Simulated scan of single mutants.
Amino acid sequence: MTVTPPEALRTAGLPLTDLAPLLADQPDPLVFATVSGAHLYGFPSRDSDIDLRGAHLLPAAALLGLDEPEETRTTADDSDGVERDLVTHDLRKFARLLLRRNGYVLEQLTSPLVVHTGPVHAELTALAPGVLTHHHAHHYRGFARTQWRLYERTGELKPLLYTYRALLTGIHLMRTGEIQAHLPTLCALPEAPARLPGLIAAKAAAEHGAADPALRPTAEAETDRLHTVLDEAEAVSALPDAPSGRAALHDLVVRARLAG
């Protein structure tokens, strides 16, 4: 079931390749699949891969026997020179990841670029606010540091933009309780560097393009400042200390599993 109109996919920079064969080539029912990665973040290049993420539903028998089930599954293909990969977790594992202050799965769940959905996806999305805590700041802080080290090592623009994106997403989440992964939208935050739109445009021209070496001292100062802003936003955030939605997630997983 494809729910994002083709024009919206085109606006997001996605080539309109047929995703149906990749989605159909799954041994268990999909709960949902959305577009993640650079297309979700708002700075894809012409040669960017299409990263699909989501959840599937294992049959109850797979969890009751002696063998450990395959809870995470990866499928990939290539269409017209565009690499696409679909990574899904069983619904139980996905729910557990949601409860572990995991920003990745939250972004995948709430991505507006939906290519497959259904009632369980809708209910799961409605439960997302119940897993948010101020501790999610740790995820975005850590991701930003990892990407900054990659930028220092490679000098590429992509990890630099990932650094800015992670910090601004974390700041926005701490202030509003809303997951916003789209960097062009986050440019509206008062702390966002004014040069970001130009860097996004440069990234669109080449997936592995190099950043101007002269940019590094300024970028370091900007990211240090954004780390401070994130720390301050976490300290005063209205988000709770622990998730409140565990019981509701448990109930959803049980109902979905029994319904098959």
Rank of each mutant, 00 (worst) to 15 (best):
V82R: 09
H116C: 04
V115M: 01
T74W: 04
A122D: 11
G170W: 06
Q147D: 13
V120W: 03
G155D: 12
Y162I: 08
E107K: 00
A166P: 08
A126R: 13
V87C: 11
L91C: 02
G103W: 08
P159H: 03
A95C: 15
V105A: 05
P112K: 07
Y104P: 00
E152P: 00
Y164G: 11
L127T: 09
A166S: 15
V115N: 04
F143P: 00
Y164F: 15
E156Q: 14
L124V: 15
H139Y: 15
L124D: 07
F94E: 12
P129L: 14
L173T: 08
L98I: 06
V87P: 10
T88R: 01
R100S: 10
A122N: 01
A144G: 09
P112W: 02
H139G: 05
L109H: 09
V105Q: 05
G170K: 11
R141C: 10
T133I: 14
T88M: 07
P112H: 05
V114Y: 03
H172R: 15
A95N: 02
H172L: 07
E71D: 07
T146S: 12
T75K: 05
T117Y: 00
E68S: 13
Y164R: 01
E70S: 08
P129V: 15
R84E: 04
A137L: 13
L157A: 07
Q147I: 08
E70I: 14
A126Y: 02
V82M: 09
V120H: 02
L167K: 05
H135Y: 04
T72I: 10
R165D: 11
T125A: 13
K93A: 03
R101A: 15
G118D: 08
L86P: 03
P112F: 06
L132T: 07
W148D: 03
L160N: 06
L132R: 13
L168D: 10
E156W: 10
S111Q: 06
P129E: 10
G170E: 10
P159A: 15
P129W: 11
I171C: 10
P112M: 11
Q108E: 11
V120Q: 04
A166H: 08
L99W: 02
T110A: 09
T125P: 00
T72F: 01
L91F: 02
G170Y: 04
L86F: 04
L86H: 00
Q147W: 09
D78G: 01
T169F: 09
T72V: 14
Q108F: 00
I171A: 06
R101L: 03
L168Q: 12
L168V: 11
D78T: 03
L97M: 14
Q147E: 14
L150T: 10
E123M: 02
R101N: 13
T72N: 09
Q147T: 12
A95T: 10
R145P: 04
H135D: 15
Y104C: 01
L127N: 03
L168P: 06
R101K: 08
Y151W: 10
L132P: 01
Q147K: 10
L173Y: 06
T154Y: 06
L66K: 02
Y164N: 04
V131T: 13
D77G: 08
L173G: 12
L161A: 08
Q108R: 01
K93G: 00
L66T: 07
R73T: 14
T88E: 00
Y164K: 01
T133E: 02
R73Q: 14
S79N: 02
P112R: 07
T88K: 01
